[in-house]
Design a protein around this nucleic acid. Sequence first.
DNA 1: ATTAATAATGATAATTAATACCACTTTATA
DNA 2: TATAAAGTGGTATTAATTATCATTATTAAT
Lengths: 165, 165
Amino acid sequence: MEQRIDRIKNQLHSKSYKLTPQREATVRVLLENEEDHLSAEDVYLLVKEKAPEIGLATVYRTLELLNELEIVDKINFGDGVSRYDLRKEGAAHFHHHLVCIECGTVDEIQDDLLGEVEKVVEKDWNFKIKDHRLTFHGVCHRCQNAGEESEAEKKPKKRNQVKVR
Amino acid sequence: MEQRIDRIKNQLHSKSYKLTPQREATVRVLLENEEDHLSAEDVYLLVKEKAPEIGLATVYRTLELLNELEIVDKINFGDGVSRYDLRKEGAAHFHHHLVCIECGTVDEIQDDLLGEVEKVVEKDWNFKIKDHRLTFHGVCHRCQNAGEESEAEKKPKKRNQVKVR
DNA sequence: ATTAATAATGATAATTAATACCACTTTATA
DNA sequence: TATAAAGTGGTATTAATTATCATTATTAAT
């Protein structure tokens, strides 16, 4: 965790930005909720718990900055809000997502599924790929088994689930 | 064109919706601009040229309806507006997009690039895929050749290009 | 055909995510 | 230290979308 913060600090410094306390608090929230897909509002509320004096505008600015530096990726699952997803360190490509249309959960796929596809696109369409977004919408393994599931096994819904309107 | 409208009319009727004059005007705009990726506002302005009495709310409602019936797909390229894209008739899957970060143009890929990938996802993640979104961000063939291009060849920018903030 | 119920529309108000603005504070630099 | 530059917080503003509601079609029932 601390090493991760240090590396992010260096990334900022290398572009002559500072890791201010507000920015650090924001980064910590992102790290502590790495498996989630938080909206700016979500991040704001979580940061406020630890640093109540922070302003919403600063959170937006920080997320925008982190996005420009490719520390986070801004994604949109079609529910009206942008969400911010930390890039995995050392990942060659942005990961993919599985959005469940039943429960709203978003799972991540870290595997590079698009290697071959990207070769085809670059060659056949003469398109220089810089980034990609791949999201599948469907029914997750949990909801497929929902009938067989005992009451005790049912996981509570999380507050920051994606809910497509 | 007329046959296409007829089939859409039937799709609506089969779910007991009517193809009202307003809905038909909206569908016509979508058909006449099939290669574009219009926002609701874009559609509204174009419909208004032919049927000035139409209201913005009706356009939004119609697009929402067409989306539910899977006649159009609602997509978001990260520039803050939803765009509406007609499904190709008989297409097994929603097509893919190439968004140019230089000129903002969106090109479409009709080929099914994800057949194998989807098999893997369904099997390895036990995820029942209903839909997908695949977008590549990068530099289009036109912008890669921009230097070699003569003044006369430069195409004017289109009004409804996607411009990522 | 007339009426009652239902569906659809248009105008506009309300909502909400995101951005702009501006006075103030902190940090770096001459 | 002074002085510029960078960053922040609060709030106003913008802009996309949705909600509301009175009015107008359309359909179904009598």
